[in-house]
Nucleic acid binder design. Sequence first.
DNA 1: GTTTGTTTCAAACGATCGTTTGAAATGAAC
DNA 2: GTTCATTTCAAACGATCGTTTGAAACAAAC
Lengths: 230, 230
Amino acid sequence: MNDPAPAPIDAPLVPATRERILDAAERQFADLGYDGASMRQITAEAGVNLAAANYHFGDKESLYRAVFERRIRAVNARRIERLIEVERSGQPPTVPVLVRVVIDPMRELWLGSADGQPHPFLRCMARTLLDPQPFMRQLVQAEMAPFLQRLLPTLGRALPDLPLPELVARLQAMMGAILFTGARLARPGGGATGELWPAALPPESALEVLITFCVAGLAAPATSIPRPSA
Amino acid sequence: MNDPAPAPIDAPLVPATRERILDAAERQFADLGYDGASMRQITAEAGVNLAAANYHFGDKESLYRAVFERRIRAVNARRIERLIEVERSGQPPTVPVLVRVVIDPMRELWLGSADGQPHPFLRCMARTLLDPQPFMRQLVQAEMAPFLQRLLPTLGRALPDLPLPELVARLQAMMGAILFTGARLARPGGGATGELWPAALPPESALEVLITFCVAGLAAPATSIPRPSA
DNA sequence: GTTTGTTTCAAACGATCGTTTGAAATGAAC
DNA sequence: GTTCATTTCAAACGATCGTTTGAAACAAAC
């Protein structure tokens, strides 16, 4: 019952198995969701034995965590780097700059690897953020909170007229626009004929339009909350 | 193998079973997703026998369809009504009016029934729109396309400077902001302590902020697509 | 009261799920 | 070449899944 491998700090000569499982799991979780994907399909697609997944990751939940953490940590680390640059520049932060702090670190996921298809992890991310399952919520909490808690005050300085609750609501709307667009872009057959959305833009352009949308949405004048009571 | 009941056109004296199954399925699908919810849990929560679900709806997939259609049709019917009013008014359509055409018919789902909690169907809707499973895609296609195909040209008249592909991308971003915000508002424990988003607004105010965000996002000047080629 | 069609019920079916097991294979250390 | 820890493999475990079945309960028509 000892841990299989403390951490993949160095790259052993043939660690392919672990990464192959992660890659296959990422695709399956993206397409079928956590419950829809099965350990058997994942390991079969990875070309490894079924027990290998349990050996490396313990159980399905931990595998999902590993899939999510592998990519989200790199994205959020870059976001925090960019945010610190903005904070240290001395100049007052602007909305377009901060929106790009959020979006730019996702760019390579949006534009895809080689096939031009956006990365399936985008769908994983949208599912995870949306799912009320407890372990996913604490996963999101643990991975997203450090960046968001740092972003919020800086965004507040860029939008000094917005009350904090409204700022939070707009940030949430922005995340929805980003995640939803990314997940739908990345869907298999996302550009098929007879599709709901005609005349889709290529991912590169769709990303620019999304930035336009989010910047304008964030920078709009404060909402006059209608009537506090009847 | 004959159909159980052609349609609930008239309300028989004790049709409770069918509706109870739909209500329980809606909650379970919202919380656990299509694969995570089981027919046994659904029928148990509804207080009916397991086989009753298969008798009334055939199979799980058809049950999901029934859950989705029951509410989305009412929403989209009201949207189309509102849209026709705008078209017939003779006045040129404006972005705020059209955003409210989309959002207002969802208002009672947002504000919840009695407990103040937003309706669980909002989570069902977000899941359905996001899921690449084929039967959900054609469900979305069948239910959403009539309204969206009617909305698009009118929205184009309100935003004559926007190329159609960018308009579509922005509409998609708006749907993401709406669905994501609604789904997270409606989550169980959505306002719990230690939550990702602090200082949440009440649903009524969150809806107004969302409208502000979407109107500004749609109405922003056209994006200058950077470079068509390298 | 009998009949007919509808709806419910408990039980079971085969399939698939996540997980575990113990033996075989593998590669580095000595 | 032997030893030792690591990693893989085929097989099986119990549980749960969606669905089906045939008898019982029920309401309305005659």
